[in-house]
Amino acid sequence: MDLSPIWLTLKLAAITTLLLLIVGLPLAWWLSKGRSFFKTIIEAIITMPLVLPPSVLGFYLLLAFSPQHGLGKWLQDSFDVQFVFSFKGLVLASFIYSMPFMIGPIKSALQQLPASLAQASYTLGKTKWQTFKSLLIPNIKPSLLTAIILTFAHTLGEFGVVLMIGGNIPNVTRVASIAVYDSVERMDYAAANTYSLILFAITFIMVISVFVFNKYQAKSPLE
C-alpha cells in the first residue's frame, strides 16, 4: 500500500498552514482596523475562493503560471521556477484557496476585541507590535486555533484546484484526495477506501479538537 499521498498531503497542509499563519496574522490585523474601499476589495479577493468553483481558480492559476507564456514564462526564464505540475504550485494554489479560512476567524476575533484594549496598551507606552504580540494575540487564542485547524483541514480536502495545477504525479502532486479519485478510476476500491478512511479520521479528529479546545466558548467554533 503506497502511503506517499498521505504524507504528501500532510506536508502540503503543514506548509500551507504555516505560510498562511505568517502572512495571515498581519493581514487580518490590518483588515480588522477601519474600513476603506481598498480594504473591501482586498477582502473580497481573499473571500472569493469560498464561493468560486475550485476548478475555476485552478484554471486561472494554470494559465497564469504556464511556462509557455506571461508570468509563468518569466518565472521559468528568470528564476528557473515552475509552478505548474510541481509541489510548489500545490503550495501556491493551497495558499490562495485556504486563505479565507485563516484570515476570516482571526479578523473577526480581532474586530470583536474592544478598541480600548489596544488604546490602554498604547497609553502605557507600548508599541503596536508589543500590543499585538502581548495583548491582542493572547486574547484571540480560540479563534487562532480554529483558523489554524480549519486551514489545515481544508487543505487536506482540496481536490479540484490541486488537480488543475498539479495533475497526478506520484510523490510530487498526487495528494490523498487525488489518490482516492485515481484508485476509483483504476477500480482499486480497497486503496480508495484506505485513503478515504485515513482522510476521514484525520479531519474528524481535527474538527473534534476545535470543539474540545474551544469548549468554554459559548458560540460555535466555526464563527
Binding site: 474592544p114 484594549l117 488604546q119 490602554a120 495583548l135 486574547n139
Partner: peptide
Amino acid sequence: FQDYALFPN
C-alpha cells in the same frame, strides 16, 4: 477607561 479596558489574558 470608562469600560476599564482590562486585559483578559
